[in-house]
Amino acid sequence: MTSVDTLETVTRRVTDNIEKVIEGKSDVVRTSVTVLLAEGHLLIEDVPGVGKTMLAKALARSIDGTVKRIQFTPDLLPSDVTGVSIYNRDTRDFEFRPGGVFANVVVGDEINRASPKTQSALLECMEERQVTVDGTTYPLDAPFMVIATQNPIEMEGTYPLPEAQRDRFMARVSMGYPLPKSELAMLDSHSTTSPLDDLEAVADAAEIAKLVDIVRTVHVADTVKQYAIDITSATRRSPELRLGASPRATLHLVRAARAHAALEGRDYVIPDDLQALAVPVIAHRLITGLEAQMGGRGAEQVVTSIIRSIPVPESTHSDRYV
């Protein structure tokens, strides 16, 4: 069994497990797992009640690692996230009490309800995978993934996430309302007990760490890397966008594409991977210009048309055949 096959087996177990709880949203589930394997963080954005938290919890529970949930509220303090040093009378010393981020999977619920100060406390943790309190740096566990949910910024009592923080999330997905059939099934399964309670872990943290290593070995051809650059740089030139994708976006796109390829059982990335991931990975980092807003085009549509306009990379072999 090749390493990619192992990966496929394990991830199928995980996705199947999540889909016991989240019905009819296999693409969202798949993107979530992709982000997990690509060592990224996931932002789930949608209106209340469509299962954002459920997805975050299901993903967290499927992995037999430490899971913590932080409910972001306006009065949440940064130390609640990172941890705090408390004086211990017995030892007569300050003792570090870890905050909510010290876990393999951190579910940040309604992240845009906390104040910007608290939101930015997450910044260092997400990017550097460590916490510094009172001059002491504490590394976080591996794997480490933040799954944040947020309501659309138009909702009352929300603070929009700053660009810098949005850029740190590898991908943003929207749940969308379930299909009538799925909603009916949900009524049956959720009516008495929460199905989340029956969910068991199907992979442990060590196993996931191994899968992450496998993903890192997935081959990306130079032409495909160039294709990724072409896509992100096109967002920077687009007249419809006020802010284009950062180089970090390019990095995230290629990393996610590796995981996407591995999930499909391939040990190489193809342009189709980038195309499939461009919207979830890039769109949330962009700020649309007035022109696009007037035309009713969101960042997602702009990215889609950019993908259509960029030619896919062709042969690198000498073209001796006309």
Binding site: E314, S315, T316, H317, S318, D319, R320, Y321, V322
Partner: peptide, 10 residues
């Protein structure tokens, strides 16, 4: 970086 010598010869 496409090598077009083939096209030329053809």
């Amino acid at each position: 970086t496409m090598d077009t010598s083939g096209l030329v010869s053809n």
